[in-house]
Design a protein around this nucleic acid. Sequence first.
RNA 1: GGUGGGGUGGAUGAGUGGCUGAAAUCAACGGUUUGCUAAACCGUCGUACGGAUUUAAGUCUGUACCGCGGGUUCGAAUCCCGCCCCCACCGCCA
Length: 424
Amino acid sequence: MLDIKLIREKPDFVKERLAHKNYGQPEHVDTIIALDTDRRSLQQQLEAVLNQSNLAAKAIGGLMKEGKKEEAEAKKAEVAGMKESEKQLKEQLAAVEKQQEDIAIQLPNLPAAAVPFGKTPEENEVVREGGTIPELPANAQPHWDLIKKYDIIDFEAGVKITGSGFPVYKGQGAKLQRALVAYFLDYNTAAGYTEYIPPYMVNAESAYATGQLPDKEGQMYYMPADEFYMIPTAEVPVTNVYRDTILKETDLPVKMTAFSQCFRREAGSFGANVRGLNRVHQFEKVEIIQIAHPDQSHTILDAMVAHVEGLVQSLGLPYRILRLCGGDMGFASAITYDFEVYSAAQQKWLEVSSVSNFESFQANRMKCRFKNTETGKTQVCHTLNGSSLALPRIVAALLENGQTDEGIKLPDMLVPYFGKGMIS
RNA sequence: GGUGGGGUGGAUGAGUGGCUGAAAUCAACGGUUUGCUAAACCGUCGUACGGAUUUAAGUCUGUACCGCGGGUUCGAAUCCCGCCCCCACCGCCA
């Protein structure tokens, strides 16, 4: 949610930034300002009337106490006339507030200054590359064939049990998942993140707070009997730990990490990109989340990118880091870096992490604030998060890039978690 | 699912129609005292949206908020209705 004061004071700036993000309805800014002017005017009128009737009520109380019954009755008659206009103004005000809110909620976050122009993924900016693309043997296979060869994921069973996109991990495949999750969490907690296990279903307030609603309504699984949404990422429940909270400045930054299953309907996506583990409806992900002082959030974003980069490097996978252009960024984000690892057998880049600074957008919606020690004022925090990491495509890349005649060679740091260095 | 109890400021907790935006205690913050720490004492100490004033920090001021929504009343934390949540016990259950 954008700050109404920013919209009111710098409408041209807001429009320019929205255009940068490829937002097609700049007229919404003017509509919101007009509604806001109405809103304030109505509020003033209503408050004037309420003030009158409050004063009258006090006077009546005083008169009753003094036993001046008749004067009190006269006052009562006076107040009765105010009731109607009070009621009307209340209704008008509520209507205008709702209109304003309905539009304001649709505005995406403004992109930060560093975000490149562009509309499509092709216009994202490669900021760094690392690792080396391995030379695979001539008979190299894509991960879906390797999965069959080593019998580590049963896609058909998943289809029978639930539907396509719900893989069943088994044997070494299941253990590899567990090893990766444990390794990622240890890596994060070693860097000062506190581990959480959140609920996998959230209520509408939580989904709204982090910006999934109303933007991604159709992308989440929904349980109508209880009005719960299956989480698309642990970001949603974990960030909401601090919904409606006022932190102390000294509490910042708050650093959290969580493993969760993630559920995405991926409505409307199909084709070549969905093969194997490239796109699934349920997947495992370890997330990192920070709640930060506004002055520090961009420094912290860089630190989070470096943190994830270290993790990807430790897996020995070739990777690149992209700074997303305005048109490719998420609804709530001010700036986003995507991590992609190279799948040697598919010969393409697979997204495995997305690290974003949401600045005050989520914090505004969820009323996550801190008390400034010097001024004593409350200010909204900034929120950030990133995947560290999403498993399926990491697994795909590990399988494809590690394939040898003897089996799949795994990175050294996984050995303590997996129990051996090779899937065979 | 059943029965009973309960939801008040950061926490505990008083408050059953006007003098209550809310006692008291604790915590927190500022200060005095102090060899250090502690203690003691004094003071400050909710949020949101408006308005006035100020270069600004601020100051003054209005309205709303005692789980949520509605109602009664000139006036509601307090009375009535609906809902939600929490706790205890019972039932069911991994």
